[in-house]
């Protein structure tokens, strides 16, 4: 699965680059508009170490951000699954926070937490958590009647048990959402870095944009893509292992 994810990404990326080169040579555009293959190769050789370290920094924040957002989404999802006033209040609060554009909230975050690690993490988590929350809410609000009925009529149902039943019955959905949210966590971290941080690949992309250097941006996109493909592949593998473990336990 992991090698497949990597070569699928390579196919997509190379197709994209091929389209760019086709446009470049078809319309006779200069290297300023679209870099030449030699320019791209030289840039890759010049910046891959520096950008590789930046991507690793971004990924580390993205992973922590993803864990935070999964935890947050589970908490909000569990609280919001109830049809009580509090459950509805939690949902409204969660939805409203998501409705605000991050660039508008960012200055408040920077005033409160500065422009270091925590701000990057918070913005990444904010961008990542909402899709997870929607899935968790969907899963947690849907009763597994055939199992839950037994515990209810015997009076042994507790909220912890309810959450466990619904989570295990929808484990595949949950792992798919979690591995998919890796993309959002990465995107969220890059947005945070682009807006304000002084580290990470988003920050390097911002500098490249200031310098109108498309070669650097393409190299950054390549490194982000390949890293994400590997990370998602690993998450999927972990999800499959957990799924098998649960099946064996049953």
């Amino acid at each position: 699965m992991l090698p497949r994810r990597i070569y699928q990404f390579l196919i997509i990326f190379l197709l994209g680059i091929a389209v760019l080169f086709a446009v470049k040579y078809l319309f006779g555009l200069s290297d300023y508009v679209i870099p030449s293959p030699a320019d791209l190769r030289d840039t890759l050789a010049a910046v891959y170490k520096h950008y590789g370290a930046d991507v690793a920094s971004t990924l580390s924040v993205a992973i922590i951000g993803q864990v935070v957002s999964i935890f947050l989404a589970l908490m909000v999802g569990i609280l919001g699954r109830q049809t009580t006033w509090f459950g509805s209040f939690i949902k409204v609060a969660a939805y409203n926070v998501q409705a605000y554009p991050i660039v508008a909230i960012a200055p408040i975050i920077f005033i409160l937490f500065g422009d270091g690690f925590f701000s990057r993490l918070l913005i990444a988590a904010m961008i990542c958590y909402f899709p997870i929350l929607l899935s968790v809410l969907g899963i947690m609000s849907e009763p597994v009647k055939e199992i839950e009925h037994f515990y209810r009529v015997t009076g042994r149902m507790r909220w912890q048990l309810e959450v466990k039943i619904r989570a295990f019955e929808n484990l595949n959905k949950l792992t798919t959402v979690i591995s998919g949210s890796a993309t959002l966590a990465m995107a969220g971290t890059i947005v945070a870095e682009f807006i304000a941080a002084n580290a990470g690949i988003g920050y390097s992309i911002r500098i490249a944009l200031y310098q109108s250097d498309l070669s650097k941006i393409l190299v950054a996109l390549f490194l982000i893509g390949i890293t994400l493909a590997v990370y998602q592949g690993l998450l999927e593998a972990a999800g499959r292992m957990i799924g098998k473990g649960v099946t064996v336990t049953r």
Partner: peptide, 12 residues
């Protein structure tokens, strides 16, 4: 600086 960068990359 944009002009000079563009010229260095062959932009007309």
């Amino acid at each position: 600086d944009q002009v000079i960068r563009a010229l260095s990359k062959g932009s007309p």
